[in-house]
């Protein structure tokens, strides 16, 4: 049985990728993931803010009260070498991880502007990253900013990052574009080799005790897989790039659905955080079992078999399928029966 799949030009032993999460923030846990069968890892994200602000902060607080009082020209020893800035630490980590594992290592950059931080992309490549995932999550709060401006900012940032690297670049998209498919196309035209559909944005909440707005990271469930399936299904074979389904992939069944809709790979985070690295084995076991039962020999055989192009019910991917979905709703399952 052949579980292998091609993703960003790499031959993965199976479609399971560990996406950026605390589990991919240390060489030890990444090694465990590999040992349990994961096929590639996306490292925890290096944020634009980490690259920019840490240095600025250190610079500010080391010097902010200097040269204002005769007895204390300065307050902290500043002729010290910072060997472990977060950004530099990240680079060292890549080197270390690359030495300890064999599967592809995808570095992750998270930012919104086209500032100097994009230069870090080339440093990540130099440090040994096999590919780079770019995560742009911009929340426009200016009501005068039109969608074209926002979209252009995304595309410009992608182009700029691509200028700095020769390794494959993948974009972790959000789903809130007017036409995600068009954005996907423009990303690919800007040099992207892969798309991850979609990100799992941090949510906003209000704390009634402090009367403050707060951010929360969200654990996903299989219920959230739908949008990934839809857009993998729509984009399958439409663009010369790899597709990775993210958000809501928790079970072997979810993986199968993603691949069948058209994904080359899937990315896992919440399920691993909840159940640990060993769950990879369970998922793979389920896939093998299902393939045996259904007499599939390979992943490539099933890939895109129920995509928009190949499905017997293309209307399911479209709005008109709404009524039909409701009619097919099964109380015992959280998904329309047709997909089971």
């Amino acid at each position: 049985m052949d579980l292998s799949t091609s993703y960003l030009g790499f031959e993965l032993k199976n479609p399971l990728i560990a996406s950026a999460s605390p589990l991919t923030s240390s060489p030890e846990s990444i090694k465990k993931l590999e040992d349990n069968g994961i096929a590639a890892v996306v490292l925890h994200s290096l944020f634009e803010e980490q690259i920019n602000h840490e240095l600025q902060q250190l610079d500010h607080f080391l010097f902010s009260h200097n040269e204002s009082y005769a007895e204390a020209i300065d307050y902290l020893p500043h002729e010290v070498d910072f060997e472990n800035l977060q950004a530099d630490h990240y680079l060292k980590e890549i080197e270390e991880i690359k030495r300890s594992i064999d599967i592809p290592v995808i570095a992750s950059l998270n930012g919104v502007s086209s500032g100097g931080w994009v230069k870090y992309a080339s440093k990540l490549q130099e440090a040994g990253a096999d590919a780079l995932e770019l995560h742009i999550s911009y929340i426009p709060t200016d009501i005068d900013m039109d969608s074209a401006t926002v979209e252009k900012m995304y595309v410009d940032t992608v182009s700029l990052v691509k200028e700095h690297i020769s390794i494959p670049l993948t974009v972790k998209m959000n789903r809130y574009f007017s036409n995600p498919a068009n954005m996907a196309k423009r990303f690919v035209e800007s040099g992207v080799s892969g798309l991850t559909l979609f990100d799992n944005p941090v949510t906003v909440d209000i704390d009634l005790m402090t009367l403050s707005s707060v951010q929360k990271a969200q654990i996903t469930t299989s219920r959230q897989l739908s949008e990934s399936l839809r857009w993998c299904g729509i984009l399958y074979r439409k663009l010369p790039c790899s597709l990775c389904a993210g958000t809501g992939v928790h079970t072997g069944a979810d993986v199968l659905k993603a691949v069948i809709s058209g994904a080359d790979a899937v990315s896992l985070a919440s399920v691993l955080l909840m159940k640990g690295e060993k769950e990879v084995q369970e998922i793979l076991h389920f896939i093998r079992h299902w393939m045996e039962e259904n007499e599939y020999q390979s992943i490539s055989q099933m890939k895109g078999s129920v995509s928009l192009e190949h499905t017997d019910n293309p209307s399911a991917y479209e709005r008109s399928s709404y009524m039909s979905a409701l009619q097919n709703f099964d109380r015992d399952s959280d998904l329309p029966r047709r997909f089971l």
Binding site: E54, Q57, L58, F61, L62, L76, V80, D81, F82, E83, N84, L85, H89
Partner: peptide, 12 residues
């Protein structure tokens, strides 16, 4: 506080 944090930046 920078007085503590900077140690981490020098030598984790």
């Amino acid at each position: 506080e920078t007085r503590f944090k900077m140690v981490e930046k020098m030598d984790k």
